[in-house]
Structure formats: C-alpha cells, structure tokens
C-alpha cells in the first residue's frame, strides 16, 4: 500500500547510513592512533560505545520513546567515538563512562534527544571531564618509541580497569603532555619556537605520531566531502581561518608563534574541522551561516590555544559557536526563488 500522500517514493538514504559513513571515515585516523600509541584507544572506544548505547536506551525508556529505531540510528555511537578520541587512552575506565553518560543523557536527551541538542554532545562530555578531572585528562600516552617504558596491551587493560601497574612503573613514566601543551608551557618558560620544536616529541609538522593521526582524520574528512555527507564550507573556512590567523602571528613574531601548519596537525583541529564542527544538528543550516560559524570557531580555537588557559581550544570554540547557531541562522536566511535581485 503506498502512503496516503505524495511523494510515494523516497531516496534510499537514512540517518543511520549517514552516521555509519561518518564512523567509517574515522577509521583511518583510529588505525594510525593504534599504530603510534598502542591499542589502548580501542578499549576507550569500546567502553564509550557500550556506555553510549546503554545510556541512550535508558534515556529513551525514561522518555517513553521507541528504543530500537533510535539505537539503530548510530548517532549515540558517533558521540561515544568522538568523545573517546578526545580522552587520553590510558585514562581510567570510569572517566570514559562518566563523560559519555553525561554527554548522552544531559546534553542530548535532556534537550529532547536526536536533532534537538543545541550543543555537540561529545564536546560537552569533553568540557565536563577537563574541568572536573584535569589531571586524568592531561595524562596522554607517549607515542611509540618515545617513552622510557611501554606497556603491553594486557598491562594497559590492567591499569584502565583495575588501576594497577606492573612493579616499579609509574604513570608519569608512560605519559606526557600533548605537543600543544608542551609548546605552551615551554613558551611560558621563555623558550623559543625553534628550540621547542627540536624536542623529540615533535615530528615533521607537529607532534610526533599525533600529526599522523590528524592526517588520518583529514583523509577520512576528504571521504566525507567526496560522498557529500558534509559540505566544504565548514572545514575549508575553519582550517583557512586557523591558518590565516596563526600565519599572521607567526609572521609578526616567529620566535613566539608557531607556524600555521603546526596548528592544523595538532590537537583536535582536523577531527574538529571534519567531524565535530560539521555535526549538522549543532551547526548552521545556511551556507553563509556555515561560513560565519566556521570563521568564529577557527578564530576562537587559535585565541584559546595561543592566549587561553587550556592547551587546546577546539572544544570550547565549538561550544561557544554552537550557542550562536540560532542567531546565525536567523540572520543569514537566503533570498528565495523569484525574490532575488533580478539580473539585468
């Protein structure tokens, strides 16, 4: 029986397929993550996925919504993955669980669930964790070959779930600050960019290992662009703004402001440009709006990185711009068919 009203045909496309493609696009970056930092991240992703699905189901039940169709939409999984990728892989298990549960329950379902959340849930989860547990949130694993000691997978599992290390090893020996964090600290100590970048944690463009992970996300992002899951507006303008502002400061004072490519391949810039800022629910719908949104996010990211208190500015830049979305949309409505300036 066809539906009651036209159109009677639809394109075979669904929310769950879109979300699935985004998840797939994350895989190159995750693979490189595992290559450089070991398999601990897979544990975080699994934990986050399970927590996300369980929280989603619980919240749907509490809200008297059908559970199966929403669990199958893959949106909770995506939130879980993005959050897991923002948390240090060797973090204790409860950190991932608390962050994901908060992201799904408070920032998504309390606002009305899928499609109604004003803020990116993964970034809310990250913000909650970095404010509440700053110590745990800044103990990042050293990349493969850089740390004084390295843990095997079983030993990593032991630490994540039980909090125990093998005899004689301490957490400090395994972890280090992120390349962005190190840069910031060293600059505060009157270091010069040139000297700082000579440190072993830096690679060709940015952090050793992490720059390759960022490249993986760039690759996945290009796939999203090619399959038209996302449009060019946000990634291009975001990265462009970040590059331009960083480039300006670098030109003015190369000793204290690192070159723009470093910013591209550090921290969450790449994953943010293609996977986080482009979240359709929390970004503007008009083309002009997307440009403004991405420009603001790029500018804020740089300002927080260069002058703020946090090592990376991506999450807060995203959240700050999320607030502006309704306003941006309202003021960037395009002219409709027949109501434009008629061409001469």
């Amino acid at each position: 029986m066809p539906g009651f009203f036209s159109p009677f045909i639809t394109k075979p496309d669904s929310v769950s397929q879109i979300m699935l493609k985004v998840l797939l696009a994350l895989i190159p970056g995750i693979a490189l993550y595992v290559w450089y930092f070991g398999p601990a991240i897979l544990v975080s992703i699994t934990l986050a996925s399970l927590t996300a699905l369980a929280t989603e189901a619980l919240m749907l039940r509490l809200r008297n919504r059908p559970i199966a169709p929403f669990l199958k939409d893959n949106s909770a999984l995506l939130t879980g993955w993005l959050l897991a990728l923002s948390i240090p892989p060797l973090a204790p298990w409860w950190l991932v669980v608390v962050g994901t549960a908060f992201a799904i329950s408070v920032s998504k379902h309390l606002y009305g669930g899928l499609g109604n959340n004003p803020f990116n849930p993964a970034m809310i989860g990250y913000a909650v964790l970095i404010i509440s547990f700053p110590v745990q949130m800044t103990q990042w694993l050293s990349p493969h070959g850089l740390g004084s000691v390295e843990l095997g997978f079983i030993e990593q599992l032991n630490y994540i779930f039980l909090g125990v290390f093998p005899e004689g090893i301490k957490l400090d020996a395994l972890t280090m600050a992120t390349p962005l964090d190190t840069l910031k600290t060293q600059l505060h100590l009157d270091g010069h960019v040139g000297e700082i970048l000579a440190m072993p944690i830096y690679g060709r463009l940015a952090g050793h290992g992490s720059e390759m992970v960022a490249a993986g996300f760039l690759f996945g992002g290009l796939y999203l662009l090619a399959t038209r899951i996302i449009s060019w507006h946000i990634p291009v303008v975001y990265l462009g703004t970040l590059f331009a502002v960083a480039g300006l400061f670098h030109l003015l004072d190369p000793a204290h402001y690192v070159e723009p490519l470093f910013h591209w391949f550090s921290g969450a810039a790449m994953i943010g440009a293609f996977f986080i800022l482009t979240d359709p629910i929390t970004s503007p719908t008009t083309h002009r709006g997307k440009l403004i949104f991405a420009f603001g996010a790029g500018l804020l990211t740089y300002l927080i990185r260069a002058f703020g208190g946090f090592p990376d500015g991506m999450a807060f830049a995203t959240l700050l711009m999320n607030i502006c979305v309704p306003l941006i949309d309202a003021y960037t409505q395009p002219k409709v068919f027949g109501k434009k300036e008629q061409k001469p």
């Binding site: 496309d13 169709p69 939409d73 899928l114 499609g115 109604n116 359709p280 629910i281």
Partner: peptide
C-alpha cells in the same frame, strides 16, 4: 525520525 538538520 527527528530532523537532524542535514539540509539535504
């Protein structure tokens, strides 16, 4: 499902 503002 709810609108996800994908703007297709």
């Amino acid at each position: 499902l709810p609108c996800i503002r994908c703007t297709r």
